[in-house]
Computed example of a mutant assay.
Amino acid sequence: MSVSPGKFLREVRAEAKRITWPTRRATLVTTGAVLAMASLASLFFFAVDQLIGLGMRQLFGLGG
Rank of each mutant, 00 (worst) to 15 (best):
D49I: 08
V29L: 13
A16D: 08
L35E: 09
P22Y: 02
M56K: 15
R57E: 14
P22F: 01
K17I: 01
R10Q: 14
G55M: 09
F8D: 01
F46K: 13
L35R: 12
A14D: 04
D49E: 13
M56E: 11
A47Q: 11
T20Q: 13
S42G: 08
T27K: 12
G32W: 01
V29T: 10
M37P: 00
V12N: 00
E15S: 11
L35N: 09
G61Q: 04
A14K: 05
T20D: 05
W21H: 05
S39L: 15
L40M: 14
G63N: 05
L40K: 04
Q50I: 14
I19T: 02
S42D: 07
M1K: 10
A33N: 06
T31I: 13
G63L: 09
T27D: 04
K17F: 07
A26G: 03
F8G: 00
T30H: 12
E15C: 04
E15N: 05
A36M: 10
F8M: 14
L43N: 07
G63W: 04
D49F: 15
T27E: 13
A47E: 07
R10S: 08
A38N: 06
I52L: 15
T23L: 03
M56L: 15
A33Q: 14
L35M: 13
P5D: 03
A14L: 04
R18W: 00
F8S: 04
L59E: 10
F46D: 09
T23G: 10
F45T: 12
